[in-house]
Amino acid sequence: MAWLTSLWEAVWHWLSTAIFAPIWQEIYKTVIEAGRWRFYVQGIGNTLLMAAVACLIGVAIGLLIAVVKVVHASSGEKPKGWLRILNWFANFYTTIIRGTPMVLQLLIIFFIVFAAAPFHMAIYVAALAFGLNSGAYVSEIIRAGILSIDRGQVEAGRSLGLSSAQTMRLIVLPQAVKNILPALFNEFISLLKETSVAGWISVVDVTKAGDLIRTRVPNFSPLLVSAAIYLAMVLGLTRLLKGIERRLSQSDRR
């Protein structure tokens, strides 16, 4: 078996000199040399911050828009004036958001709407822009969830004398949540990745970090490291959300 051992040694030698060493060198130059990892750390922090803030804004806006649309649609032939105005605004908002590119929305909000914002505030403007964008999609998810609840539930609530707001809050939304969560979690994952355009307004997120390092280390690995970081974040988030979903569906089987 001696020949087998020597063959393995030859292969290992080739592997380590031709493959592992260059890769290690590459990664060393990209991540460790000159403390470049700090770009990535900063990027991860900024990406997560933007995603988290945008997620909260998105859910808040989405819920509001969805409720306006559902209440308007269910209020029969002649809805009240203020409801019509709200509904018009909700439709206008979703149309604009879904009909224009994210990057352009980001640029418009930063350079036109918040033209006076200093650059260090860019990350908050970006988070707001992503939240406004996400809200339009979240509203459709929540609206579908609300519509999935049988009309009889609303009728039962109203017949007991509950107001439409109480019926929505105590009867419809708690049931709709279970139908909404899977799609909503999907949206969160998309949102995390969509923040990658924040570099357009000079926010150093994971993508921008990789791009900055690329200008110093003219090689392929900076962007691949960025990609690996996103992948790891998405996998971690997916696991977390799956866990939450499972916990909720367990309580469902009581």
């Binding site: 009889g152 539930q153 039962a156 109203r158 017949s159 007991l160 004398g161 049931q175």
Partner: peptide, 20 residues
């Protein structure tokens, strides 16, 4: 009409109990 409905109980064909 919410207040008046409090005094009018209703029972539905499909029961419509709140499942949650």
């Amino acid at each position: 009409c919410n207040r008046l409905r409090q005094k009018m109980g209703m029972v539905f064909q499909q029961f419509n109990l709140f499942p949650h």
